[in-house]
Amino acid sequence: MAEVKELVNELVDKYGRERKSLLPILQGIHLERNYLSKEAMLEVAKQLDLSAAEIYGTASFYSFLDTKADGKYKIRVCKSITCEMKGKSDIIKTLEDMLKIKVGETTEGKRFSLLETNCLGLCDQGPAMLINEEYYTKLTAAKVRKILGEYIRNKY
């Protein structure tokens, strides 16, 4: 608790105690904690003098702000039409087989979450996916096995 308070304090000092600073503050918490805990959102509400519902309402609107804890590595596979045409479903199937979870689920121990996302802006290089901040393009099942294999071995 004390730690969250400190983090929010730092971010409020950096971005300002105003509503317009809300997204940068939430993103700052997310970067450190990987999600927005209830405690963190309550602390932001207190500091910015807003209702907790306003904070939650804003946070839950955006697809890159999570309000519940999930995987340390978030795998986002682009599901836009061009990535679908280039073989997105093979990519999903390979990931599901390797992680033994379905889209929308998180592995035990919260290491990987598998998500589909809307257009990543890499339509000329599909299928594409994002693992946390890393982009992977022109994917094939073999390529996915190699990439994810490395995450499992080195970064698990």
């Binding site: 105003e18 317009k20 997204l23 940068p24 309402g57 609107f61 955006y62 697809s63 809307n118």
Partner: peptide, 25 residues
């Protein structure tokens, strides 16, 4: 730079502005 948080509708200029003001887009 103002970093978005993932919402297609924020490409609409007034939704973009709402988002910059710390609200739902």
């Amino acid at each position: 730079i103002f970093l978005g948080a993932g919402a297609y509708v924020c490409g609409e200029e007034t939704a973009l502005i709402e988002s910059m003001e710390g609200k739902r887009g």
